[in-house]
């Protein structure tokens, strides 16, 4: 059913200064899906994300969001975005957790609710810079949740986050997908995480190398296409 397709990417190509970054990408994201977008550094996965978020315009192809062409799409509140934490100017601000969660315009009730959903209620009056990397990422998820999105897009959310916090973080994402029926798109270069967490994988390396369930996709021939033959992959368990 078309209303169950939240994102429909058709024949997208994107060049940067004449260099092809994305070539003829076709991809759909369905309601309730937990999609992992996998690819090596410089493979174009963040570019694809920025095209879906309307920050970049592709030279060819089209994007539909919630059944509407992206050029006419105005309901951006339906899409939550969690940025890469590293390099974010605001981390050093004297800003409280509650202020970060409310900066999108959410009311007090939604702020309290979303902080509870990510397990950060007791930290609400702390300064953002007093929190660990994993906790800061939870706050950014709460900021997105406070606007009641239907689709949550996360760009390499655990870069610079310690392993223990990463485990808790992915547990939270799993719960949001299962309990709140939130559609998730996780961009990552971490095959191990993606293999165990997501329900669908799309592998990007300029082209769409593969797309399907993790078990179907994480085969040696696809991985060779994605990362080259020199690299060996060990997916634990």
């Amino acid at each position: 059913m078309s209303e169950d397709i939240l994102v429909n990417i058709k024949n997208i190509s994107f060049n940067y200064n004449g260099q092809p970054v994305l070539s003829d990408i076709n991809l759909t994201i369905k309601r309730g899906e937990y999609l992992g977008i996998l690819g090596p550094n410089g493979s174009g996965k963040t570019t694809l994300l920025k095209i879906v978020l309307g920050v970049l315009k592709p030279q060819e192809g089209s994007v539909q969001l919630f059944g509407q062409d992206i050029a006419h799409f105005m309901d951006w509140k339906k899409i939550g975005y969690v940025p890469q934490r590293v390099g974010l100017n605001g981390i050093s601000f004297p800003i409280s957790v509650e202020e970060v969660v409310g900066m999108g315009g959410a009311d007090h009730k939604s702020i309290v609710e979303s902080l509870s959903q990510v397990g950060m209620t007791k930290h609400r009056t702390k300064l953002l810079r007093e929190l660990s990397g994993g906790q800061q990422q939870r706050v950014f998820i709460a900021r997105a949740l406070a606007m009641k999105p239907q689709l949550l897009i996360l760009d390499e959310p655990t870069v610079g986050v310690d392993v223990e916090s990463q485990t808790k973080f992915y547990h939270l994402l799993r719960n949001l997908n299962k309990n709140l029926k939130l559609t998730l798109v996780l961009v990552s270069h971490d095959i191990d995480v993606v293999a165990h967490e997501v329900s669908e994988i799309a592998c990007i390396n300029c082209k769409l190398v593969c797309h399907g369930k993790p078990k179907e996709v994480l085969r040696e021939d696809f991985m060779n296409k994605l990362y080259g033959k020199e690299l060996r992959f060990v997916v634990h368990n």
Binding site: V55, W76, K77, Y81, L88, N89, G90, E99, M103, G105
Partner: peptide, 18 residues
Amino acid sequence: YKKLLFAAFDEESAKISG
């Protein structure tokens, strides 16, 4: 106020939020 704060804190996310 909130728009000024969001744009100062995280320009890209602010843009994506409309």
